[in-house]
């Protein structure tokens, strides 16, 4: 799974800490998601979608191995 959360975050001018606070997780969790070390749950993905104002498919993409 690949994602463009870092880009979406930059568009909204949000820090990792700001985004983490908005969706109720820790800053390290946002960092891990951005680095593709952790795949978030559907609930978290939908929370991100709400913050970015875009469908989940716009910033999460399946990679070759998935």
């Amino acid at each position: 799974m690949e994602n463009t959360i870092k880009v979406e975050r930059a568009i909204l001018n949000l820090t990792q800490g700001d985004l983490a606070e908005k969706i109720g997780v820790s800053r390290q969790t946002i960092n891990s998601i951005e680095a593709n070390r952790y795949v978030p749950s559907t609930v978290l993905a939908l929370k991100l979608s709400k913050v970015f104002g875009k469908p989940v498919n716009d910033f999460f993409k399946l990679s070759e191995g998935d």
Binding site: V25, S26, T29, L44
Partner: peptide, 8 residues
């Protein structure tokens, strides 16, 4: 901060 990643 007990989020879903910590649970995992």
């Amino acid at each position: 901060t007990e989020d879903e990643m910590i649970v995992s």
